[in-house]
Write a protein that binds this DNA or RNA. Sequence first.
DNA 1: ACAAAAGTGTTGACGGTACACCCATGC
DNA 2: GCATGGGTGTACCGTCAACACTTTTGT
Lengths: 272, 272
Amino acid sequence: MGIGNVSERRLAPPQVGVSVVILALGPDATGRSRLWLPLVRRVRQPFLGAWALPGGDLAANRSLEQSAYAALESTTTLHPRYLEQLYTFGDPGRSHGGLPMVSIVYWALVGTAEAKDFVEADNVRWFPENELPELAFDHKAIIDYALWRLRTKIAYPDVAARLVGETFMLSQLHDVVEAVTGEPVDLANFRRRILASGELEDTGAKQRVGKHRPAAVYRYVAAASTPWNPYDWLKDDDDGGVDTGGHAAAGPAGPDPPPVAVDDDPMSALSR
Amino acid sequence: MGIGNVSERRLAPPQVGVSVVILALGPDATGRSRLWLPLVRRVRQPFLGAWALPGGDLAANRSLEQSAYAALESTTTLHPRYLEQLYTFGDPGRSHGGLPMVSIVYWALVGTAEAKDFVEADNVRWFPENELPELAFDHKAIIDYALWRLRTKIAYPDVAARLVGETFMLSQLHDVVEAVTGEPVDLANFRRRILASGELEDTGAKQRVGKHRPAAVYRYVAAASTPWNPYDWLKDDDDGGVDTGGHAAAGPAGPDPPPVAVDDDPMSALSR
DNA sequence: ACAAAAGTGTTGACGGTACACCCATGC
DNA sequence: GCATGGGTGTACCGTCAACACTTTTGT
């Protein structure tokens, strides 16, 4: 669009995009677990040819979450098991010469089980978190921020659980936490803490990994006081006073507000 | 702008606004402390005449924070002591008939000391949190969300401190916490916990409130591992790898990420 | 029997809560 | 002295880290 001079461009409404930081577990060269994320190669200026977060313009008839989901679909067929708004970036200058740009950024977790169908299309590639290429705009900083968020939340059973498959052994969950934090975690205490949360259910199945004692297989079940996001209030506003559930259980240092439970049907989060 | 039919309007870029939930302490009818917030009366459709959050369009040459600050200035001359991005709302239908609208919402705390100059302009009025009028759009839900955020964070010394004046007695801080949470808090334990945080400094001054023993006067001093926001990474990205400081001190259940320390000079947060 | 991972028990440090108590001040 | 809030002491309890220990499996 040919808006010519500077003063006119200042009045032009900023472009609004929705981007997603998609995180999945995968093996690194040595076989250890590591976080991977898909990036897309830019096909236009600025930063033509550079790698960037998946994203797109916000369509006016879609919710932010739907737009984030659409961006996610552009790089992987995997269903997100977790999708949460991360932050909105909109400072002038971050586009480095393009139009002023507001980016509403989400972060998503996808299960590791399915993560092998890393659809490597022409302009999409998965990178391990510690070997990122040069990134467009301020996307490197955004990814770092998303990783920080993940690391501060990985202690919560639901977050860790959404990085593995539908069912899992406790040792898997433990590996995930150690991979994400980089810190060793006492397995015995981890077991107790995670089980005490009441958010894991023993499926009854056993799984043998080596030639050793088989481990119990668990499934994640949402806690009674479910995750919580601003849309709950929006809904209440419309249909009047539904009990929002005891989020007070989270306590004053609780697992901060707007996570969105994307259960097993990923569309459930989109139809709110 | 005269975009006529529906399919064209869908393609129109959404309007981007920045709004602020401004919170201050004030007395209620019985003299108890209570949260107050300023609202503005809408002067155009939709929701003409209804009360709404202060806000404005996002100017392309301003940062989000600057825009939030500008919105704040439209209702009060008070300087924010705390300013943090709350959430971005952008679902279709929330504008109830207007253009599709994305609202990037901040929340701000202003000190109670100065809060008496509630500039009650024609179209601005302060309301106590429990006696809000009918609100435009989904602003009621947004305010409820901001209040929830405040209540989950009020246990942290810095948040509580920013709701009172520059200096204060511990009993004042205690009153604030009780007013915000609505729960009684053991004063003796509150003292110890808050002092143990290391974020309060004894000014040496004493203040007498009744005819009783005078109380020590404290001042808030930022902790070594300071508050933390995404812009830190953006800055690091530009000038290369400055140590971001030990935000790990917050721990896994820590006081979640993006608060913005608005010290005593409110512009300091805007020049980042 | 042995190796290796699954899973349990025990202890002690720490932080928070409840509540009794002393201190400083004005009347 | 006595009332009133400022400020301290202490005992108890729950949570969690550390780490020794037992159990179950395959070879």
